[in-house]
Design a protein around this nucleic acid. Sequence first.
RNA 1: GCCAAUGUAGCUCAGCCGGUAGAGCAACGCUCUCGUAAAGCGUAGAUCAUCGGUUCGAAUCCGUUCAUUGGCUCCA
Length: 649
Amino acid sequence: MSEEFITLTFPDGSNRKYHKDITGLEVAESISQGLARNALSITVNGSILDLDQPVTHDGKITINTWESDDGQYTFWHSSAHLMAEAVQELYPEAKFGIGPPIENGFYYDIDFGDQPFGLDQLDKVEQKMIELARQKSRFQKKTVSKAEALSHYQEKDNEYKIDLINELEEGTITFYQQGTFIDLCRGPHVPDTSVIKAVKLTKLAGAYWRGDVKSKQLTRIYGISFPKQKLLDEYLHQVEEAKKRDHKKLGRELGIYMIDNMVGPGLPLWLPNGTQLRRTLEHFLRDEQKHRGYQEVITPHIANLNLYKTSGHYPYYKDSQYNPMEVDDDEYMLKPMNCPHHHRIYSNELRSYRDLPVRLAEFGTVYRYEQSGELNGLSRVRGFTQDDAHIYCTHDQLKDEIKNVIDLTQFVFKTFGMPVDIRLSFRDDNEEKYGGDMEYWERAQKEIQEVADELKLDYKIVEGEASFYGPKIDFIIRDAIGRKWQLGTVQVDYVMPERFDLTYIGSDNDRHRPVIIHRAPFGSMERFVSILIEHFAGDFPLWLAPLQAKVLPISAEFNSYAEECTDLLKSAGLRVETDTRSEKIGAKIRDAENSKIPYMIIMGEREREQNTVSVRRHKRGDIGSYPFKKFLNKMKEEADNRELPPLSI
RNA sequence: GCCAAUGUAGCUCAGCCGGUAGAGCAACGCUCUCGUAAAGCGUAGAUCAUCGGUUCGAAUCCGUUCAUUGGCUCCA
């Protein structure tokens, strides 16, 4: 290897030789002036660097522009600094915490002291940002000693930065300055502020310093920025579109659910349409589980507090449970989970190894006292139903059972057309968060990973995400507009069998401990329905639609023929209604379209004579005329096959 | 629970600097019996979330409580 030259490999696989210590900008210039103009930063061997930083070694290089994630990351990081500069100009007393880029934009946590900071002040900050951006201030990097860094912030009386610096190693501390604002920061940044052309500050929130409830709460300002006004407009338009599929809006419009203050916050009431939808989902999963050897059980909504003391849940989750109620001389609690009930069912009889695995399933309704600020439509509630099941098996059966559960879960999400990412959630070394022996944990984690490998799953491991009694496999689905939701989980549990003294008689005639798998593909029916509504934007596939077709007679003269057809469709197991209002056909169609009903069946003179139906498909319009019987079969087939509509995005 | 914002008819919203509520859609009634995204006319519907304060007078200003929304924290 030469001292003077380095070889850089570009994303397309090509190589080029450069003088050692060439900067990113010079590399970009060597390719094209256009690229150099658009370059924001470079990524070398996985780390993002400033454009003017010298490259010292051979390696893979990417010139980051707005088009890449790393480029946006740099852009938004610099935008956070720009916002801080604007805030500093307007509020010189403000003290700054942290200000990172995030998935969609950036934020900065700021301590405004006693000055309240409200939404109406965001405009001013925005304007200031644009004004400052136009000054084209360079982002300049400085390496400082720890002592210098500390004294800088002592002078500013900023305890937050001091807190951060104290955790840094001497020699690694850098500041970046643009305009009048200087900030502790490891970078990288865009070359200068002029690339930031459009800014929107989007949200204001309280955020605890370092995420700790006991620390001071800072004001967090969220924003997003773009290199062109047009991109900002597009982004805002997209946000508007996303709002249109909000399940809280559609849930009301489509008659899915309501929340009533007289009943209580976080306690959803399922309306007829929502109940139909939920029952369809339950039937779907129930049938599938029946095929896979599950037995269904039903357990009560309250139980003696001792049950949860035995399970160990009570002390862990005391704050998020409804207070116990006194019954006779005992204390009872609304059930916050179904597991202990199922464990008692397991213990109801002596189990032989020949009986295992025992798979107990229940659509079990549970109640948890969620913090008031957490409640959200159907997706975060205080009373909800889990599609819960517990599988009791021998150690030898464990891996196969996990495989079956993964297979079921994948089948379920495939049916809804949702792509799935898999995460193995393991423990970290915080002893207090977990129950049970370390030995069990290691074993369970090893087995889960082995199964994932054997199934050739594409997974990632995240430490610290386990539940308190065991590691999990989490299924993270992506919806139609790319948002991610953690849904189904599979958990391996060695703790509860001990606590509940669960046993089975082995072939050796001795007692043994079974292993438990907890699993819930949907997680909660409430949350899953909220996600389905947003995924389909309310345009459900035929098999899920609460009302599958509306028969629309042209005028009252055809009402009876329409009713006849409706009855025939109903007898075929389809959900159909007739619209006999004295409205014009256009109005009937419009109302049916707005209610997102998949099929509209129009009946008039022609149809009655020829025994046909004229059919419209939701959002697609007239799809022509069919002999009645043929259409009935077509509809039936589409519903039975659980066909997915083309997604509207 | 904490921070910020919001709360006017079933829904969507108007109501300026205080002078005691207004529209569209929906509902209901009547007329029209109609061919692929809104027929016409009429009727009814609101102690302006709550409690309290300021004021001659409060939907409007101030405070309380409740709820909702967006975040933070939490999520068996």
